[in-house]
Structure formats: structure tokens, C-alpha cells
């Protein structure tokens, strides 16, 4: 274990950026905290106290827009020029335990056969430094998904105690980075302090309103059709205004659309996040397979609670970060959906 003062973080980040590693850390701008690229200008607005960034760290492994290739025609031949794969190392600092799990959910999709090369390259360059949740909030329900907010995963775990960061590397990647910055860290054996912090976090988590057990056992792949055809979706989706807020701030929403941009003499093919809330989601030549908002709304929750677990050994593709609970314009969210299925029809 190591330690570093919170005030010395900018120095550590500067060292990393100087040596060719990009650093992304939570930065406050106005009322919002988001992961931003670390520069001298943002050093004074680093914010490790705010629990949740508005956007999730998914942005760094699966950017909202990604250019795939250019296609040009030369001598009646189509020439493809693929975008270069990510080759610059980066660190995402201050990732919360739920968001670390979120990246694992994405890994389970994008790194499985067929492997997504763009994702794989980007993921390989990244080191995730996670941060335990000293002050979990009302909308958190990570515990329902067996995520321990006191024991963050990732490559390096951090516990922020009295303005001092307790640093523990968890993987080879984490160990390598630790070696690289060792001269800025102090050795530490304050295990007791960290254990006390962990206990405190677990007590706080247990006291949260959503920690009192969500009826997730109702969502099993063998009940797929039963859940799909349930009359409750009509009611649940009524207030949905079909925006994509929930899907875009979600750390695990992973669908993308592929489009060709006519750039005059060439075609640029790119992909961008898609949202099942949108009317053109999975639009095909024959038309759309989901014509009503109820069907689109249902898709999101079926994907997270039934389809994904069916394909990934029971792993839900929700990590209980609570972003959708906090941000839905109509106060709809996955917790309301899960709870509504508590009683069988």
C-alpha cells in the first residue's frame, strides 16, 4: 500500500502527462462534475468529493462517436482506409466501483468473440484507478448487484481518508503504473485506517433506501416471454418522453448505430451511440420492429435485466449507479421498473 496527499495529485498527473500518458479525472464545471482531460487549468477544479460524474467513464472505452474508416474510389476500385487504433496510454482516475463494473459489463460484450478491435485497443491502453465511495447517495443501489462500494476494483484502488489517498494496486497494469510514479508516493501500512473506512462505507450503504433488496430474482431468462408480455409495461412507459438521457448517461448502455457520411469525394463511416428510446433504433429496410414507445422502453429494461443475463451467465447489465434515477426528466428509472415486478400477476 501507498499514500499520497490529495494536494499532490496534480503533481502526479503532471508527471504522467509529461511522460505521454493522458489523465482523465473528475473536474467540476459549474454545477456539474465530469471526467475531463487533466491540464494545469483544471488542477484547481479537481473534484473527488462529488460521488457521481454526469457522464460515465464509458466515454473513454466506447466514445459517443468513433470514426471507423474512409472509403474512396480510385480506378474503379474501392479503397478502404481504416482509422488507426488507439495507441496512447491513459489513466482514468477516480472511477467509482459501480462504474468499474460497468466497464467489465462492456468488456463482456466487446472483448468476446467477435472482438471489437477499436474497443480492444482502447481498453488495452487504459489504466483504471478506482475510488471507494466514502459518501454513497440516496439513489445508489450497487449492492443489489453485489458490487462492494468499499472495495473498488480496477487496476488501482484508492480510499480517500482525511485528504490523503490510500493507494493499492490490484493488477499488473496497476503495478506498472505504481512503479512509474513510486517517487511521488509514500509507503504506507495503514491497513486499519482503510479497514475502518471500508466498514463505515458498508454501514452507509446498508442504510440506503435502495439497499433493502430489489426483487431482481423476478428477472430470470426462463421467464423471458412472461415478462415481455406483461401488461405492466403499458403503465410503466406512459410517462417516457422518448429522450435518450438514461441511455447516454448509463455506464453500461452499449448499443451503437453505424452511419456513412458523404464527405464529397469519400465516404466516412462512423459509429455513434444509439438509444433504444429513439424512433430510428434498429430501423431496417422493412421498417421498425418497435413502433411504440412502450416497446422501446421495454427493450431497455429487457436488455439489462433479461437478455444480457441470459447471454452472460446471469450478469445483469445494470450496476446500480443511480444516474437514471437522478436524471430522468419524468422521474422514471430502472428501480421503479424492478420494484413494479415484485408482485406476480
Amino acid at each position: 500500500m501507498y499514500k499520497i496527499d490529495k494536494d499532490n495529485l496534480p503533481e502526479l498527473f503532471k508527471f504522467l502527462t509529461k511522460n505521454g500518458t493522458d489523465v482523465f479525472a473528475p473536474v467540476r464545471k459549474g454545477n456539474q462534475v465530469n471526467f475531463e482531460s487533466f491540464t494545469d487549468e483544471v488542477a484547481s477544479t479537481l473534484d473527488l468529493d462529488t460521488l457521481k460524474t454526469v457522464r460515465s467513464p464509458k466515454d473513454f472505452v466506447l466514445p459517443q462517436v468513433e470514426h471507423l474508416f474512409d472509403a474512396t474510389i480510385e480506378n474503379k476500385q474501392i479503397k478502404l482506409e481504416t482509422s488507426p487504433l488507439a495507441d496512447k496510454p491513459y489513466v482514468i482516475f477516480g472511477v467509482r466501483p459501480c462504474d468499474v463494473k460497468g466497464i467489465e459489463v462492456l468488456d463482456n460484450v466487446y472483448l468476446k468473440d467477435p472482438v471489437d478491435k477499436f474497443y480492444q485497443a482502447r481498453r488495452a491502453q487504459g489504466v483504471i484507478i478506482s475510488l471507494a465511495c466514502t459518501n454513497p447517495q440516496q439513489t445508489c443501489f450497487c449492492k443489489s448487484f453485489n458490487i462492494d462500494a468499499a472495495n473498488p476494483q480496477g487496476d488501482i484502488a484508492i480510499w480517500l481518508i482525511n485528504d490523503s489517498l490510500n493507494w493499492k494496486s490490484l493488477t499488473d497494469k496497476g503495478a506498472n503504473l505504481t512503479t512509474q510514479v513510486k517517487h511521488l508516493l509514500q509507503e504506507s501500512s495503514d491497513i486499519d485506517e482503510v479497514e475502518a473506512c471500508q466498514k463505515d462505507i458498508q454501514l452507509k450503504i446498508d442504510a440506503l433506501p435502495y439497499s433493502r433488496g430489489l426483487p431482481l430474482d423476478k428477472f430470470t431468462p426462463d421467464k423471458l416471454l412472461e415478462i415481455f408480455n406483461d401488461a405492466r409495461w403499458d403503465e410503466l412507459s406512459k410517462a417516457c418522453i422518448a429522450c435518450g438521457t438514461c441511455t447516454f448517461i448509463c455506464p453500461t448502455c452499449q448499443c451503437y448505430d453505424v452511419k456513412d457520411y458523404d464527405a464529397g469525394k469519400k465516404v466516412k463511416r462512423y459509429r455513434c451511440w444509439d438509444s433504444c428510446m429513439y424512433s430510428d433504433f434498429t430501423l431496417m429496410a422493412h421498417g421498425n420492429s418497435r413502433n411504440t414507445q412502450k416497446e422501446r422502453f421495454r427493450q431497455r429494461y429487457m436488455h439489462k435485466l433479461v437478455y444480457h443475463p441470459d447471454k452472460h451467465h446471469g450478469e445483469f447489465s445494470c450496476v446500480g449507479c443511480g444516474r437514471c434515477v437522478n436524471k430522468c426528466p419524468s422521474s422514471l428509472n430502472i428501480v421503479k421498473v424492478i420494484k413494479s415486478f415484485e408482485v406476480d400477476n
Partner: peptide, 12 residues
Amino acid sequence: SKCIRCNACRNA
């Protein structure tokens, strides 16, 4: 530049 194109403003 903060916009994530969620279209919530439009739909609301």
C-alpha cells in the same frame, strides 16, 4: 460542447 444529444430538451 456539453451537449450529449439526448434530445430531452426537444422532447420535453
